[in-house]
Amino acid sequence: MILVLVETDAHGATETSQETLTFARELADRRGGLTLHALLVGPLADGITQAALTQLGEQGVSTVRHAQHEQLSSYAAGSWATAVATATESVSADIVMAAGTARGSEIMAHVATRLDATMAANVVAVDDVDPLTVSRQVMGGAVLEVMRVASVPAVLTVAGHAVDPRAAALPTQPHVEVFEPPLTESDVVGRVVRVEATEVDDTAALTGARVVVGAGRGAGSAHGFDDLLELSELLDGTLGVSRVVTSLGWRPHHEQVGQTGSRIAPDVYIACGISGAIQHWAGCQSAKTIIAINTDADAPMVTKAHYAVIGDLHEIVPAINEELRRRGS
């Protein structure tokens, strides 16, 4: 049995949780048809629960376990971990998985510690099912580690965009079981006591954007972003920047794309004045089409891109903006 912790947003199961379910289902099939269970945690609006159940059915989930407890109204990694560990033990799961998000990684680290299990983070592929051997991203995805996960249960997080979510051949109508995890005081000491509105934080816009205009050192200064912001507006997109840009204080950290920033998967990424070091590539490699604008034709960003324009972004981007405006965009 494989158990998947499912995170939710306003539309039901998150995109990365659906990817994780697809990954889990394909692993379950290779293990000779293990059943696939999903876990929801905490109170959810009816509409979100219904949407999630439909999505979980499309992913071939047979049983949905839903942890409910009055203490689950605010997030605490310890409480979520107790919900996961309880569900894992009650069904004797062989493998327990979550998406490799901030929360998924945090919760699974607690789960693995409590269950004395081995955890493989940011898995992208299963090399062998017995003994379980996976490939996972290390060095920000620039290197893959082939790792044996000998413990039962095995704890895995799946790297974002490692697979596309695909519906099962036979959709299911999952059976829902509600349970109350045995939370203790130590589970809730690390709970969120309040959420503060962040002044401006477009992280969600960045990770969900269809078009991202990227900017690196080539922007030149904190004043070098006007044309880039205009381009992103003309394309109904979002600005994303490399680590050097935030380190120099030119733009806020929440705009950072990379190993220590957001991981994006837009339809089009226009990387302007970005050399394409591993730190950055880790965050943008899942873009479907990459257009690089750079003065250096040999920059890694250019050689890894699908399309490139060689030259100064401060000359090229205004020309693109003008052409877009001329055509009425």
Partner: peptide, 23 residues
């Protein structure tokens, strides 16, 4: 990589591509 051109003269090719990609 397909090099669309050098300098601002490549803007037309970039915009053609953006239309082709539907963005």
């Amino acid at each position: 990589v397909e090099v669309l051109g050098e300098g601002p003269a490549a803007a037309t090719a970039v915009v053609d591509l953006l239309y082709k990609l539907g963005v």
